[in-house]
Amino acid sequence: MSIDAQDHDDAETLDDQDEESKNRVQAWAADWIRNPQKAYAVMGVFMGGVLLATTLFPLYWLFAVAMAPPGQTNIPLIPTEIDLYAFVDIFQQVPFARYMFNSLFYATTVTVVVIIVASLAGYAFGRLNFRGKLPLLFSLLVLSWFPPATLFLPLFRAFNQQVKMLGLFMLPAEIYGTPGAVIAPLSAFTMPLAVFILMTFYAQIPDGLEDAARVEGSTRIGALFRVIMPLSAPGVATAGILTFITVYTEFFFSFLMTGDAASEWAPIVNGVLAFQSRYTVRYDLQAAASLVAIVPVAILVVLAQDKIVSGLTQGALKE
């Protein structure tokens, strides 16, 4: 404290305040230096906040759009009224449930096909030794690098016309516009990743367990589905979810290989676009439909997350 400021009231208070705030900042800094985890905690909360805001805000914005009356282009940050009728309306104006069913059907079927076929492949690659294993695995990897779009034209032609495949056989019927035209290519595109994931997990199951299952009376395939797969639950769940979400959100093939109407096996994207006519666009209904479309995936992730955690905590894989 300076001598000339001794009798000066204001000066003294200012000086005091300054000192105090400086001390507080210093103390704060010193505290953080001593306990770095406090700094990390603050940073963690901050980063988490940013992440949540950036991921959740678009969803909130969709909700705000869905609440706005039809035709309104100026969307307030906070909806003026909460009117959930848009969520009912979407099912009345178009067969939105059917569109959803179509997409869910594609996703479920492809997931089942991929898990079964990729399990067999993952078993072979992960647990057996055979000639040509590496080249085969590598070609699978290369295949997964192909942009699916490049395969669209040949597939489109093959599905639309009776083409002689490799000059050997013809597809029994035109499959364009049927679920097969979506399920077949998408199963192929999602297969390599699933094979790699399952291969890694299946390779880690001790041989003894498979031998035990075989001696006890199951076949190799029986052992795969009864012992190896249940013990690889986290891997199966991961591969399954990735496949499901990829197919459910897939646009290109499911849009182009089917008609526009729900009854023609059109996917959910067609359902959202159906609220758009030549002269009007019902943004509120499109937003509501988009939100509803998210629900199945959200439920699945929450459920499967539980599965993954339980699979990991089982911890009985060690031998």
């Binding site: 001790p206 003894g208 367990l209 031998d211 035990a212 299952a213 075989r214 001696v215 006890e216 009376g217 199951s218 076949t219 012992v227 249940p230 013990l231 089982q314 009985a316 894989l317 031998e319």
Partner: peptide, 27 residues
């Protein structure tokens, strides 16, 4: 193996970790 009428006990015991004792024995 399943058609040979044999049973085997393994060095690493090889119980199925996802099944309880009853399910293991009755597999």
């Amino acid at each position: 193996p399943k058609d040979r009428g044999i049973a085997m006990v393994f060095q690493n015991i090889a119980l199925f970790p996802h099944m309880d004792v009853y399910d293991n024995i009755s597999f």
